[in-house]
Write a protein that binds this DNA or RNA. Structure first.
Ligand code: MN
Ligand code: MN
Ligand code: MN
Ligand code: MN
Lengths: 215, 215
DNA sequence: TTTTATTTTTAGTTTTGTCTAAATTTAATT
DNA sequence: AATTAAATTTAGACAAAACTAAAAATAAAA
């Protein structure tokens, strides 16, 4: 499998979680910053290799084989992110790009040894679960902060949007995974929240609350 | 710079250490397991990018810029090898292939943080020196075991040949970097050595002694 | 110094992954 | 149901990196 093929498979995997019936050509092109015609070409190749099932105009889904490959790439991506943050001291907004390259290093032994070295982490620095060596993903129980009842206490377990901008906003507000959050009040008009994070009171827009997972 | 370009630059660097006047097309082809005609094509491209100076039929040398790039690739290769051995527990004969891929990950910050994490090692698992962030290589004093006087004590500091076969032979004989070696006797006929390694007596062919560096 | 052998380069293809522009299919609107 | 719009695919082209076969240059041998 080439790096390009792996990038396609991974994108199809992520899009499948949202649209399991089939992923559109255009959606894939958008994620990979390429053109729809290039996607069509690649779908034929991946279909020949039995990694996706594809009928033209109908979108694609991953085959068993493709799904497993995708999970292994995601596993590598997330384990490398843990390494970069926990061992090398990168901050959580700096690691995605580098992991995007590291995820393509081809050695099962490497990734399993890395997993052990890191202490078999369950989640990456953004709270996303790490598939085990067999591809099994332990689902992490979580709710969006925007959908949680008032006056209960939670702690942050992940982010939905892991863009640099959002992560840096969270850093600025001293919100990190593990922070304790209590929703004090919700504004009816625009769903703005008043919250207490690690004891400190804060006002948070719905857009923020909608991208923060708590448990 | 593409992965392929980087592999060429690195090979030219290694060959330059032996033939500094200019590296042949065929030698490069041999190292990269490709054809001479492919090398010629690539030399034109690298020359256009001012990484090598090339006149046809006359061989190539690295430019200032090419030399620096080469050292950075070697730096990455060797640091990753240290990581694989020291942190992940790979043995020294397993790491070359994986480092061959890892050396192409493009992030200066990554490699400098890795360097710090590893404690700024001076040499890789095979005793080869690691260029610093500026490309400076501290030369390691060393002699081949085959060229050392009799009855003096040394310790192993590196291997010339780092093929799996040779490294596994050394493992079998319990010879590692750091081992204390004393040459007891040298056979006139074929230069076979009788040595004491960490106190244990051993007979060693000239081919072996010719690939083991001591200090 | 010719002749022969070796090395290196050129010319012409191939494969992978991309692109643009045009054609086709499906979806959405009148 | 017919028309328009949007999404998708085809056709044809290109750049990167490789190959084979043939030509040219250099080195070695007679
Ligand atoms: Mn990637
Ligand atoms: Mn992540
Ligand atoms: Mn390499
Ligand atoms: Mn090495």
């Amino acid at each position: 499998m080439t790096i390009s093929e792996e990038n396609y498979i991974k994108v199809i995997y992520h899009l499948s979680l949202v649209s399991p019936k089939g992923v559109n050509t255009n959606a894939i092109a958008g994620m990979l910053d390429t053109k729809a015609s290039s996607v069509t070409d690649m779908m034929k190749k991946l279909s020949d290799k039995d990694l996706v099932s594809y009928q033209k105009y109908q979108g694609v889904t991953l085959t068993e084989k493709g799904l497993h490959s995708a999970k292994m790439i995601v596993r590598k991506h997330r384990l490398w992110e843990v390494f970069l943050v926990d061992k090398l001291g990168f901050s959580w907004d700096e690691v995605h790009e580098i992991a995007e390259e590291l995820e393509h290093i081809k050695s099962e032994q490497l990734i399993n040894k890395l997993d052990a070295f890191l202490g078999y982490p369950a989640a990456d620095p953004h709270g996303d679960p790490i598939p085990d060596a067999k591809g099994v993903i332990k689902k992490i129980e979580k709710q969006l902060l925007s959908e949680v009842e008032i006056n209960a206490s939670f702690h942050c377990v992940g982010v939905k949007d892991s863009s640099t901008d959002f992560l840096k906003y969270l850093d600025k507000q001293k919100i990190a995974l593990g922070s304790v959050v209590k929703v004090i009040d919700k504004e009816d008009f625009d769903d703005t929240l008043t919250v207490e994070i690690d004891g400190k009171r804060l006002t948070i827009s719905n857009k923020i609350a909608n991208n923060l997972y708590v448990q």
